[in-house]
Amino acid sequence: MSPNRWYWLTAVLCVLGLGALAWGRSPSATVVATLPPAPLIGHPAPNFTLSTLDGEPVALADLRGRPVVLNFWASWCLPCRSEMPELERLHQRLGPAGVVVLGVNQAEDPATVARFRQALSITFPTALDSRAGVSRLYGVDSLPTTFFVDRDGIVREIFIGPMTDAVLADRLRKVYP
């Protein structure tokens, strides 16, 4: 291709590219708050109500206005066990600042959950998903899976697998800058 053709082609694409830049900036491409609830980044987190180990009801909608770290776990899951101290440290450090760490235990009996929490000195609240209905609602197919929900109730990050302190701090920035 001749040099002039390259220059013209580049100029035309760059001008059209400015249009693409403006298009990418338009709210229609970025605003997602009107989307239906779904366990997907950018969607409102699906609401649920479960009981904690103490028998207290906990509803996700009631936590609106506070960043929520929603962690699905089970006692038989070794990676879940490995990240529990990190989640507990986060709860101790940022709980007073309003960050909610909420564990969701997947389909285990309360006695097992209580023993596990006691063994690892867990103090953040744990909701009992006895029939795994909330796990299904959130499409959790491997443990641990953690959803980071911002103050407006929007899912901002999903992490599958165990988190170190550094990974947790990194992902938390999406909901607690």
Partner: peptide, 8 residues
């Protein structure tokens, strides 16, 4: 450049 606006 042209596909990026289709990303959420």
């Amino acid at each position: 450049l042209f596909l990026e606006p289709l990303r959420a």
